[in-house]
Nucleic acid binder design. Structure first.
Lengths: 121, 121
DNA sequence: GGCACCTGCTAACTTTTCTTTGCATGTGCA
DNA sequence: TGCACATGCAAAGAAAAGTTAGCAGGTGCC
């Protein structure tokens, strides 16, 4: 894990991710039961391509997790499930979060491909 | 008030509003003490025009309130203060919120100019 | 082989959001 | 009058996000 306590940048990322109706619906759908991409797309009635993009964002924000599995008949299926999370948003929480916000103008670190680096700095 | 319980659309609006570093900083700054536009702009070191746009969004989302006041020396100053709010975000909360989401493709009602309509429907 | 499933990618387009620039108004004061 | 400080707004450009369309690959089965 990166940091046990979410930084301001993390918060921004999570909020940005959840501020989209499609993604909200995806999370809600997965909260019931895990599902694989094609089926979820049919159930939500959106294109698979579109769903894939949203799922990637959700995963990048750490809100869902994917797992590639092989069904009995040998087909590759990517299952997604929601991670447990709980964000509280009050003015005071924001005061705290802002303290760990990357200063304007700088890139807030890319959490896209981060398995688990352990730097010895 | 419109509805005591925030609808899914409200949630999306709030999250979209708070998913911006500038606006997060504004909320944090106002959480300490209320302030007027020009001064706040100087303190946050952003242009007044930019701040104004962000403040409008925050107000539209119901997160801050503005009040035009006249200083002792007669100058008009617009003070902003944060409203108390508390949003909880868990998968389960999202399941609930999604139930009151405007179906895709439709306009989610414009809360921009809403003083306090009381419809007799 | 042809069809029905599954995944993954990207180029291109549309839409939304963000930000700057510039000008308008008003006050008080030297 | 000219300067400092306050507000407000809109046009226009730049950047980011959302969406579609089309292609690739793979498996199993009739």
């Amino acid at each position: 894990m990166n940091s046990p306590v979410p930084t301001g940048d993390d918060l921004v990322r999570v909020l940005a991710t959840l501020s989209n109706p499609h993604r909200l619906r995806v999370v809600a759908a997965l909260a019931g039961r895990r599902n694989y991409v094609s089926r979820l797309a049919r159930e939500l009635d959106i294109s698979r391509a579109l769903l894939q993009v949203h799922l990637k964002k959700l995963e990048a924000a750490g809100l869902v997790t994917s797992r590639l599995e092989l069904s009995e008949d040998g087909k590759a299926m990517k299952f997604y499930e929601v991670n447990a999370f709980a964000v509280r948003l009050t003015p005071q929480d924001i005061v705290t979060a802002v303290q760990t916000l990357t200063p304007a103008g700088q890139a807030p670190a890319d959490h896209t491909n981060e398995t688990d680096e352990k730097g010895a700095t």
